[in-house]
Write a protein that binds this DNA or RNA. Sequence first.
DNA 1: GTCGGTTCGTTGACTCTGCAACCATATGCC
DNA 2: GGCATATGGTTGCAGAGTCAACGAACCGAC
Lengths: 186, 186
Amino acid sequence: MPSPSVSSRPTITMESPTAAPASAAVVADEPGIGAWRNFLTAHARVTRRLDEELQAAHGLSLAEYDALLQIAHAPGRRVRMNVLAERVILSRSGITRLVDRLEADGSVQRIACATDARGQEAVLTEAGLDRLRTAATTHLDGVRRLFLGRLDAPALDSLEASLGRVAEPLASGTRTTHEGCPPVDA
Amino acid sequence: MPSPSVSSRPTITMESPTAAPASAAVVADEPGIGAWRNFLTAHARVTRRLDEELQAAHGLSLAEYDALLQIAHAPGRRVRMNVLAERVILSRSGITRLVDRLEADGSVQRIACATDARGQEAVLTEAGLDRLRTAATTHLDGVRRLFLGRLDAPALDSLEASLGRVAEPLASGTRTTHEGCPPVDA
DNA sequence: GTCGGTTCGTTGACTCTGCAACCATATGCC
DNA sequence: GGCATATGGTTGCAGAGTCAACGAACCGAC
């Protein structure tokens, strides 16, 4: 996995009034900053751990796992590269390469889109589904242990609502593209 | 910046009882999973945006900003590489390289640790402090706009508490190393 | 002392990601 | 139909991160 990075909290303070050249301090103790920092820290630590576990047990990165999951959820188990990129939150080139890897190991197959000649779809293979299923037990176990298990129901609800409010407005431009190509089979 | 990746939510379901080879579905609608997904999505989207802004306006990545901030906070504005890595949540080699970059642009200087000959400390230069200060306005503005501004005080408190509980237990081994080398100057 | 095991920071090799450029196709307008 | 523009996916390249291996220094037992 890439890597996190935790930040924030500046403001200006004087170290010592008549101090040497090393003068002003930089820290903001604005209210809410604690939440922000914990947000960053929690994310960095938890995802790092989950990624390690997933990698060790199944040779999958979190991003790859997520991609498999997204495809599995899609109707017909196929998704346009386009849409997949947006869901996994990766650039288009990033998705191209990620799907390359998944295709190389047989978890996914690329097919041309029936209605748009420039389109490609990633479809989950049986092998990919198996892979996802077994990986899921590891992953879910980790999520429960490291995240869900630390929080009670009200906290989870509150978290979901709050973070939903944060995430929503940043949804990338209104998607016009349909998630897959039209019904192909019966 | 690296990159996120959002995941989760498996379970097994049959698509259609007597369906073809493409059989089981994978999705878990375990309670709490919504919170987890929003957590991942919110983080991915917000940090991506903040990173872009910081990069565009000041040529700093979020990780670099964070490192500068951590150093600025430390007493004497110097921190052992060691400790810095842990705070920024980067591997040791990652920190070595990040500090390389900051040193190259004059924001930081490396000095030998007085009490431990194998140690190095990163110290903030005046230029680095300026850089941090100007970047801070951009960054803080972004954090307020994209994160803090979406949440009211109780939500922030709850978030801070919840995510604190998540992050805490994952703190890396009890740090014995002191954050900097002993008092060097007056 | 000194010897074995650790810890510190750096380096080399590699992986993953994004950006910009690219070609192919789609779409709207004339 | 024919052209200008936008969109979809891939590719070259560069940036940033990890892991494993390394030398140097520390630390404790003997």
